[in-house]
Computed example of a mutant assay.
Amino acid sequence: MKPQTLHCHTTFCDGADSPAAMAAAAFAAGCGAIGFSGHSPLPGQEAWAMDPARVADYRRAVMELKAEYAGRMEVYLGLEQDFYSPDTGPDWDYKIGSVHCLLMPDGTQLPLDESAATLASGVQRWFGGDWNALARDYYERMARVDTVTGGEIVGHFDLITKFNENMAQFDEGDPAYREAAFAALDELAGRGRIFEINTGAISRGYRTAPYPAAFLLRRLAEKGGRITFSSDTHSAGTVLYGYREAVQLARDCGFSSCWYLTARGFAEGPLPVV
């Protein structure tokens, strides 16, 4: 099967390149499909979220590419819907459900992937320095991310580990951390949600392995969970970044198939050839 990437950002949010440039790169890389997943509008996070005034233009640009590549490569109109974003309606080919920040009791938004310092400061301020308390808060939301956002795909499931290479911030082997993560994973897998194996933090130099971590992928395989592959690309040069290694990781963790978006919805198929 040809690979596809359904997690793709452009200049309509925090991406570096236009939809046309991203589509051209995906086609040149041999993708069977590209899905655009602009960040949903999110008040307070305007630096990376889509401007509500640009959503109609975003739709139009993707639909034009859908027509341009018809018969050569599938183009899908998607959205990365954040847990705290306003409802964007059902008129999308698919949605990725993600949690990029946590809403604190006083209304402050704690960004989870802005920087290591911002996250560490937030954990100190709001959770008394207890990273497992952060994990419980985060994974409680992740457990509901599909019902809140309408996302068929679970975005970067363990995003709070973005800056945790070599356990720099906390121990992912801590039973309390794993309990919180497993509880959310089991709920989402039980509802048939598709987890992306996401290589985006690798291409941007933060991690050396995809989301989710291998121990989570093994748990997902044991639960009969579903996966897809995404580069979470923000530039034309990374549309399939790290896919070969991600596919091998999936095999090593017990997966022999993955899920592809088609004109009739998501369908199971063999692992992609990259």
Rank of each mutant, 00 (worst) to 15 (best):
G225Q: 02
W259P: 04
N166S: 13
T88S: 12
W131R: 09
A263L: 09
N166F: 12
G128K: 02
W48S: 02
A25Q: 10
P210I: 06
A16P: 02
E196A: 05
C13I: 06
F215Q: 11
G192M: 06
M73T: 14
S85H: 06
T88G: 13
P212W: 09
P212T: 10
R178K: 14
Y206L: 11
Y84C: 12
A250F: 01
Y241I: 00
W131H: 10
S18G: 01
A213L: 14
V55G: 06
L6K: 05
D174I: 01
I96F: 02
E222H: 07
S235C: 14
V99K: 07
L271D: 03
E268G: 07
Y58F: 15
L261Q: 12
E268S: 10
I34H: 03
Y84A: 14
R219P: 10
I202H: 00
G30T: 10
K223R: 15
C31M: 08
G38K: 04
A209I: 07
P105R: 10
Q45A: 15
Y69C: 12
S235H: 14
N198F: 01
A20L: 12
I96L: 13
E179T: 03
D17W: 04
E74R: 13
G44Q: 06
R136N: 04
V55A: 10
V247P: 01
S115E: 00
T10P: 10
A133G: 11
G242Y: 08
S203L: 03
D113Y: 09
L65V: 03
D91N: 14
Y58V: 07
H39D: 11
R178D: 03
R144F: 02
K162W: 08
T262D: 08
G38F: 07
Y177T: 00
G30Q: 10
D130Q: 06
D186V: 03
A33V: 02
F215E: 10
M50W: 06
P272H: 01
F255P: 00
T5S: 15
